[in-house]
């Protein structure tokens, strides 16, 4: 494992008026998969949102460095172009914009940033077909409006398809497993695993240990009350599954 890809130091953040993050420290190196687990309201989605540049959050203290850049100074689209990808917990429906048009615009925005040539309609389609096969995505979803009328599983597959197309350096999966049945979960996990390599890092946020049977993490962190309370290897996830989160909350407030 080489240099640091992402370094979060003493991160404090508010969502509106509520103080949510109370000093997060986390270092992710290229190729590492980190899982963040925690109860509802612990700050998991806030952390994902702050890293991706979602509006509505205020960083009150701390710093985030990404590849030697001050991440917090970049606009959301700049972070995406620099290789950060957020798989949304609730993918957004966009009426009147076809999935095909959206994905092509996205891929080409990122290719342009990397100094690569834009893909034309035909080249894009053949790339999309290859990636769609990995997530077993029905072809007709490409011609439909983005996420409109998609089932919960189709929306999450669409997220992973985007990830496969954009090939990020750091993928943040925000509760990608919630609401999925086991078959859909397996498909989504296969898509994520297809991207795993020694240079690509992942931050997998989940409420349930189940996902981590399919996407096996190198490190597991337990988040409660806006701080990482414990870190460990993948066995920590199993411990949490047995004991639940209640002992942590007691420990944190004690």
């Amino acid at each position: 494992m080489g240099d640091t890809l992402l370094e979060i130091q003493n991160l404090h953040a508010r969502a509106g008026d509520a103080q949510i993050l109370n000093g997060i420290d986390l270092t992710i190196r290229p190729g590492e998969v980190h899982a963040i687990m925690g109860p509802n309201g612990s700050g998991k989605s806030t952390l994902a949102g702050v890293l991706a540049g979602r509006p509505g959050y205020t960083v009150t203290d701390g710093a985030v460095r990404y590849e030697e850049k001050n991440l917090l100074e970049l606009e959301a689209e700049e972070r995406a172009r620099e290789g950060i990808f957020l798989a949304f917990q609730y993918p957004v429906e966009i009426p009147g914009v076809t999935n095909n048009y959206f994905l092509k615009a996205s891929v080409n925005a990122i290719r342009e940033h990397r100094g690569e040539e834009s893909l034309d309609a035909i080249d894009f389609l053949s790339l999309a077909k290859e990636k769609m096969a990995i997530v077993e995505m029905p072809k007709d979803l490409m011609g439909r409006s983005v996420n409109e009328g998609f089932s919960g599983g189709e929306k999450k597959r669409n997220e992973v398809l985007q990830m496969l197309l954009l090939e990020p350096k750091l993928a943040i999966l925000d509760e990608t497993d919630s609401g999925l049945d086991i078959d859909a979960l397996r498909v989504v996990a296969n898509g994520v695993n297809a991207l795993r390599d020694e240079n690509r890092s992942m931050l997998v946020i989940t409420h349930y240990q189940r996902l981590l049977d399919y996407i096996v993490p190198d490190h597991v962190h337990v988040l409660a009350e806006g701080r990482i309370q414990r870190s460990g290897g993948k066995e920590l996830a199993h411990e949490l599954e047995e004991k639940g989160y209640s002992w942590l909350e007691e420990g944190a407030s004690a």
């Binding site: 991706a52 540049g53 979602r54 509006p55 606009e75 959301a76 689209e77 972070r79 995406a80 172009r81 990808f85 957020l86 949304f88 993918p91 957004v92 429906e93 966009i94 009426p95 009147g96 914009v97 959206f102 615009a105 996205s106 925005a109 990122i110 940033h113 409006s145 985007q162 954009l166």
Partner: peptide, 28 residues
């Protein structure tokens, strides 16, 4: 705003994202 962020989080610039959402509204 959530749709706008979704597009921007995929690398599409703010101005283009707004234009895309506006066009989507007209598409029907």
């Amino acid at each position: 705003e959530e749709a706008l962020f979704y597009l921007r989080a995929r690398g599409i610039g703010a101005r283009e994202a707004r234009a895309l959402l506006t066009r989507g509204f007209a598409a029907e």
